[in-house]
Simulated scan of single mutants.
Amino acid sequence: MANKITIRDVAQEAGVSVTTVSQILNNKGDRFSSLTQQKVRAARKRLNYIPDFNAQYLIRKSSRTIGVLIPDISNPFFSQFITGIQNKAMEMGYVPLIFGFNNNSQRASKYLEELIKRAADGMIIASDILDTTDIDKILKDNHIPYILLDRSSTSVSDSDHLMVDDYNGGQQVAQFLIEQGHQHLAVVMPESASVNIQRRWEGFYQVVEAHQNVSVDRVFAPLSKVGGRQAAQAVIKLPNVTGLFAINDEVAMGIYRGLEDHGKQIPVDYSVIGFDDIDIDQYMKPTLTTVHQPILRLGEQATEMVISRIESPSKPVQSNKLPVELIIRESTNKR
C-alpha cells in the first residue's frame, strides 16, 4: 500500500522546513515572504496533501467538528434540518459528523460515546429516547456543549434551549378547523409523545376546551406514514368527525392513503392538517394544509448556538423559540 503524503513530503517538495509548512498551512505564516508562501501552497496542491486530523487537533486543541445525532435520516424533516446544519457549520469553519440511529436507544448511546471519543467540540441531539439527565451529565463531565431538541426546555435549566412554538401551532390548527365549521375533531399522535409533540396537542386542546360545542378524540398511532395509514381505520369509526389534525406531515401522508383505502375523500369527507411543512406537501393531491416550522433555520440556529457556546463557554444561557405559521392549501374546506 502506498504511503500517505505527509507534511515532510510537502516541505521537501517546497524546499523549506516542516515548521515553515505547518505555520503557513495553519495561516500563521505572515512572517514568511509571499514567494515562500506561494511555494508551500503550490507544493501542497501538486501533492494533494491533506493535513492529518490528529496532528491538527494536538496543535489547536480543537477538532472543529460538531456531532449530530438524528433519529431517522430518511425522514424529510430531518433531511432539511441536516441541510441547515451543514450550511451553517461549513460557513463557520466546522464539520458536522452526522449519525442516524433509527430510533434505537442502544445505537444512539453508542454513537454518543463515539462522538465523545472523536473529540467533537459540540453536539446537536434530536432524540426523545435518550435520558436528558444522562446526556447532561455525560456531556458536561466531558465539557462538551450541546443543543437538545424535542425535549423540555426546563429539564436542564442551565443549558442552552432551542425550540419552535409547537403550542401555538396546535392552537392555530384548532382555531382554523373550528372557524371552518368543524365541530367534531380528531388528533392522530403517538401515545408516548415527545415533549414537542405533546405541546402541539396541549395547544390544540386549549382552544377546543374553550368551545362547548366542539369535541375532540385522540387516535394513537406511531409517528410515521405507516402509523397514519393504520390510524385511518380508527378515524372512520369515530362518529361525526370531519376535522383531522395529523401531528406531523408524515402521519398526514399515511392518513391520506388510509382514507383512500376506505373510499374516503379529502377534503370532501375529511379536512386534514399536518405539521412541519416538508417539501412534498405541495405535491400531494390535494396539497396539504400544514403548520410551517422553519426547519432549515432550526438547523442553522442550532449550529450557531453550539458554536457560540464552544467559542464563548462562559456566556449567558441562550434560549430561542422560533415562530410557526399555518399554511392553508387544498386539504381543508368549510363544513
Rank of each mutant, 00 (worst) to 15 (best):
S157L: 13
M92R: 14
R60T: 12
L25Q: 04
S34P: 04
I98D: 01
E114W: 11
L322Y: 08
K321A: 09
T65Y: 02
E300D: 10
I135M: 02
I295F: 06
N320K: 15
R218Y: 09
G203S: 05
D277C: 08
V226W: 05
P96R: 07
Q12E: 15
L25T: 03
V195P: 04
Q172K: 12
Q23L: 15
I116F: 08
S62I: 04
T19H: 09
S159R: 07
F99K: 11
T19P: 02
V216E: 02
F176H: 14
N333Q: 15
F99D: 10
N48V: 08
L47R: 01
V21P: 03
S109T: 13
N75G: 09
V40M: 02
K28L: 07
V187R: 03
P286M: 06
T6R: 02
I59K: 15
A55D: 04
D166S: 13
E113S: 15
R257N: 12
P294K: 04
S153P: 12
T303N: 05
N75Y: 03
K45A: 15
H211F: 02
N240C: 03
K334F: 14
T242P: 02
T332R: 02
K45G: 08
M305N: 00
K140N: 12
V40L: 00
Y146A: 00
L112C: 09
T19M: 09
D217Q: 11
L185I: 01
E260D: 09
T132R: 10
T242G: 02
L177Y: 00
L130R: 05
L244V: 07
V317K: 14
Y270L: 05
R41L: 10
I50C: 09
V188C: 05
R118C: 13
N333K: 15
R46S: 12
I197Q: 09
K4S: 10
S34A: 13
Q172N: 11
G258W: 04
F81L: 15
V95N: 13
N87S: 13
T6A: 00
Y283R: 09
I24T: 01
T287K: 09
H143R: 12
I310Q: 00
V95M: 12
D134W: 13
L149M: 09
S74K: 12
A89D: 01
I197N: 00
E325T: 13
N196Q: 11
D217A: 06
P239L: 08
E209W: 00
R297C: 08
E300R: 07
L112Q: 01
E113N: 13
S105F: 08
